[in-house]
Design a protein around this nucleic acid. Sequence first.
RNA 1: GGAGGGGUGGCCGAGCGGUUAAAGGCACCAGACUGUAAAUCUGGCCUCGUAUGAGUACACAGGUUCGAAUCCUGUCCCCUCCA
Length: 420
Amino acid sequence: MTTVKSDFLNILQERDFIHQVTDLEGLDAKFTAAEKSNGLSAYIGFDCTGSSLHVGSLVQIMMLRWLQKCGHKPIVLLGGGTTKIGDPSGKDESRRLLTDADINNNLAGIRSIFDQFLTFGEGKSDAMLVNNAEWLDKLEYVPFLREIGTHFTINRMMTFDSVKLRLDREQPLTFLEFNYMILQAYDFMELGKRYDCALQMGGSDQWGNIVNGMELGRRAAGLQLFGLTTPLITTADGKKMGKTADGALWLNEEALPAYDYWQFWRNTQDADVGRFLRLFTEIPVDEIKRLEALEGSEINEAKIILANAATAMCRGENAASTAHKTATETFEKGGAGADLPTINMDAKILTNGIVAIDLFVEAGLGTSKGEVRRLIKQGGAKVNDVKITDAEQVIGNNDIIDGQIKLSSGKKKHVLIKTA
RNA sequence: GGAGGGGUGGCCGAGCGGUUAAAGGCACCAGACUGUAAAUCUGGCCUCGUAUGAGUACACAGGUUCGAAUCCUGUCCCCUCCA
């Protein structure tokens, strides 16, 4: 591996962020020079198909954070314009088209996530948030075609995976989607012109789009642009980061409580601990080396550090320590931490008593009565940490301890019942 | 336009008139072992019922039959080959 001189690339390299770079030496030289003067701007694009981002985008966000730490200027490009089109990469079928109102709503949600990770403002290394609708919405068709269209050949566009895949499978690819890569390329050029942005980063699936943008910038505007991609992050058992069977791991508090977020990191597999510490925390690499070398049950210490650091960054220190405390109380002391999911129930229901099966379904610890019945039969259901054996057992006021009832499904899922 | 193949449970995929709530795999849930890990093993995995059981269910709508996921008709959708 080539040794790099700039702080930024050095960090990315030693923390395994880099998959491909278009011109590592050239880029390194540029960063090195910039670190002695005003810093360099670089951008990453995010689409606005949802109102939150999930852990899958976290690698990109961390890169922007490091960029800022090294004195450069991160540009967050939100695809308000391109979201109206839909990136065909990796999609079997067209996305449904979102309305302007949806997109604006999504923009606001995503914006709040970036506020956690980056400092925005007017200073030279302050982050800025740009919406590509700003220029894309205003484009005029014929001038655009004359100016930009001449730099793309259909022959070349057909060779891109995103397009080729659809065609090979004879799935329809609309003209609208076909234009996505041109618009993304246009974004890069536009950012280069407006903000002197010289680098686009992104996931490895964005390579083609990034290269396109570089070429367009060079041909149409004489800009020297660079591209850098991150590897696709998978867990040790080969699953894509960010999605679980229960749903996506959202970065927004409204979409995923801090406790669950913390638990996700706490439950990282041994084999992933070192990699995740490097990518998703700012713990110094030497310290990480020590942590990932821990053996046996001691590696749990590393997992807790990972969970605390990752949660603190995304949800704040308080959220992280509350989640940590809840976990300690729940798992190590067998009690009930304050941060466990809580359901408020009408006091009357408990006064009258409720059958255990119904209570569990009510608490969301099973989707059907049959499921809860099975859970009980297999010994996975507990009320106040006492295993229940009778599905018809009546739970009532007698079971309230310290104003709450703790229900458990298996070792990890707990719900507190409180009366309203 | 012509010829053929197919649509089965969250996914993949067997079944091709009764013994089929539907093999097997994946995913998922519990239990054991552990370290809130992985691997392994055990049990479970449509709904209701303590259970014998009942109700729904094999693209959709009809039909044949004592009996259909399996046969027939129509509709919708997918795929392959030829033009």
